[in-house]
Design a protein around this nucleic acid. Structure first.
Length: 283
DNA sequence: ATGGGGGCCTGCCGGC
DNA sequence: TGCCGGCAGGCCCCCA
């Protein structure tokens, strides 16, 4: 689920029930996710107001009134479930606790936010807000793809002389932050570039052309998440799920969607991950 | 420095 | 029905 657009969708869903609201209690049901939780996490959350919910790459960042920031990463299978009736609009009753409900935030407005993560590749940490750029998980991140920090020359320079497949280069969070397997596949499809092509062997103009493509792919996915968000209250309150139709991802053996292309979508494994692409029109 | 592969976890699905 | 292999939207870490 969670690449940049999904995380942004989660952030937007949480903001109305968390921003400006105090955490009256936090239930921490196990000592760790991928890594141990920070010391005294529950105590450091309790009584703090969430001043602002931000996103950096695939991380949700909650600035607390204490001057600390809570970092949340959803890993592969992390979910945020909102329940209660914080906005005076019916969300749904608090559901019974489920397996893998690792952390529960009880908000002062009556909302309950449950972090559920079966595979536990997710993470939570606390840091001083003022020193977040030093945080190990954030320090090396490349530019936000939807910001002005990401532009053609940046990508051209980053790809220069790189001997790695472009697929790996785009997954490299130091080059551009927030892309994952799905949106890299979709980007390369639109760009007409094979995932196997070496990053350093793509003409600068074609690399530059990927910048607006990356922006479009991500923006469209956020919009799709946003539109499904509108009715999340009448659904079960679960955020982060949205159906999105992909051009290539998950479409092995199906016909290429490019106008006039007769290709069949192939799947290849690159550094342990599936790449979907059209061998006909992606070169 | 760079590139590749292993490993962390659980759940699900298809095949036998 | 049960077991097994393969697969999954991430990312750190170690090795050459």
């Amino acid at each position: 689920m969670p690449e940049l657009p999904e995380v942004e969708t989660v952030r937007r869903g949480l903001a109305p029930v968390m921003e400006g609201v105090e955490i009256s209690r936090a239930d921490v049901n196990r000592p760790d996710l991928r890594w141990p939780f920070p010391t005294r996490m529950a105590e450091r959350l309790t009584g703090q107001r969430v001043e602002r919910l931000r996103r950096r790459s695939k991380y949700v960042l909650a600035d607390l009134s204490s001057g600390e920031t809570l970092l949340i990463h959803l890993g592969m299978s992390g979910r945020m479930l909102i329940s209660g009736d914080p906005l005076g609009q019916f969300v749904h009753e608090h559901p019974a606790a489920e397996k893998h409900d690792h952390v529960v935030f009880h908000m002062e407005n009556g909302a309950r936010i449950t972090f559920n993560d079966p595979r536990r590749f997710g993470a939570m940490d606390l840091m001083e807000t003022a020193r977040e750029s030093e945080h190990k998980l954030l320090a090396a991140l490349g530019p936000e793809p939807l910001s002005n920090d990401f532009y053609d020359k940046i990508l051209v320079e980053a790809f220069k002389d790189r001997n790695t497949p472009v697929k790996s280069a785009l997954l490299d969070q130091r080059i551009v932050a927030g892309l994952g397997n799905i949106y890299v596949c979709e980007t390369l499809f639109r760009a007409g570039i094979s995932p196997k092509r070496k990053a350093g062997r793509i003409a600068a103009a074609r690399v530059a052309a990927m910048v607006p493509i990356i922006r479009d792919v991500l923006s469209e996915a956020i919009d799709a998440g946003g539109s499904s968000l509108k009715d999340f209250r009448q659904a079960d309150g679960e955020l982060g799920y949205f159906q999105h139709s992909f051009d290539v991802y998950g479409r092995e053996s199906e016909p290429c969607k490019r106008e006039g292309c007769e290709g069949i979508i192939a799947r290849v494994v690159q550094s342990g991950r599936s790449s979907f692409y059209c061998p006909q029109c992606q070169r």
